[in-house]
Amino acid sequence: MAHLRRSGICFEALRIESRAEFEAALAQHWDVVLSDYNLPGFTGVEALQLLRARAPGEAPPVPFILVSGQIGEDTAVEAMRNGASDYLLKNNLARLAPAVEHAIATGEAHRARLAADRELQISRRRLSELAQHLQTSVEAERHAIAREIHDDVGGSLTALKFELDWIRRHADQPKVQQRAQAALETVTGAIEASQRIMQNLRPAILEQGLVAALQWMTSRFEKRTAIPCEFRTSHERAALPPGVPLVAYRTAQEALTNVSKHAQATRVVVDLSISGGVLSLEVSDDGRGLAADDLAKARSFGIRGLHERASTVGGWVDLSSGAAGTSLILSVPLDDVTTGSLPGHNGDGPGAPEDPVSRNWTSN
């Protein structure tokens, strides 16, 4: 204490000698602990262990400096490995004040870093929760819009089509028949466009299961883009937890959209498998690949959205790209999921997929 005062350091000190006194003192706040090595009933190393026990897995919350005249080099090195801030010999205390100041500054920086890390984790968790909420809200809004298109627009267009067809069949003049036929073709085009929009908003085909939905999607992709698209799966039927089929469907949809827009590919493969309790969906192409700049674009929200969407079901997305093409893999752990067709679990049934939109619209 005399050395510290001569160095101009103002401080308050509590001198203790026993283990019980030390444990009681740890209940208070201290800036630094100066410890002899040989103490009544225990050692400085044991005191360091008691201090570390207050913050398991982290550096000691309070800087700990050993000051001894008998400590050997091996013991000093072991103490440093166990978290001691420094060690000094009693016959050379010239370094005591700088060591104390340095230890206190390091401890404050460490505590500030821990606090910043906790704030960052909280911020990331809140951001993830917000992103998941937005994904859920978007899907709910899509569902509502698709229902309105089906019930209001679809019903009106279908009724109008019936009326125009009646007029065409009962018209006596050829010109009226021609105009009615042209109007029928226009209405039919509007119905098809509405069906396409509704399917993009709400993939009703998922009611037949994820396998059927992906078969239908890849088939439509190949017809629309003329790019050969192969779908492979190790499970013709799969019972999946709620939310997983929609996440997998949207991931494949986004990946195929990126392929058609940017990849310049000549072949695409969509592979769905369930192994080791993990669902894996891979969409790979032989296109030009993605450059690092493409992924770093400020407004590149597609891939980021896939990451956030996957996190809503506890999954993640891996993306690799090179000269041989691009591969996007969605992985989702499945908790106690068994294969097989189960009612109400989006089980995949046998048979070729059909367009669910056309099926729904014929009910009008």
Rank of each mutant, 00 (worst) to 15 (best):
D36I: 05
F11Q: 10
A183E: 02
G276C: 06
V270Q: 03
L130C: 11
N82R: 09
E23Q: 14
R237S: 15
L93V: 05
P245K: 03
V247G: 03
N200I: 02
D286P: 04
P350Y: 02
S321A: 13
G243K: 04
L295N: 10
R147A: 13
R267V: 02
L201Q: 07
N91Q: 15
F22R: 06
R169W: 06
I191T: 03
E12D: 15
K90N: 11
A263N: 05
N200A: 15
T338E: 13
S300G: 15
A140N: 15
A239K: 03
N38R: 14
D36A: 11
I104T: 04
V337E: 04
Q177V: 12
Q253S: 15
I71P: 01
A55M: 01
G305P: 06
L130T: 11
A323T: 09
A226E: 10
S311N: 13
L14Y: 06
L214Y: 06
A324V: 05
I205R: 02
R142V: 01
G351C: 12
L246P: 02
R267Q: 14
M80C: 10
H150N: 13
P343K: 07
V269T: 10
W361R: 12
A79C: 12
R202Y: 15
E163L: 15
A103R: 00
L328E: 01
I274C: 13
P61D: 06
E78H: 07
P203K: 09
Q253M: 15
L281E: 07
M198F: 06
E254R: 11
L88N: 00
R232C: 13
V187K: 03
S321T: 09
R288N: 09
I227S: 04
E148Y: 09
L127H: 12
L256C: 13
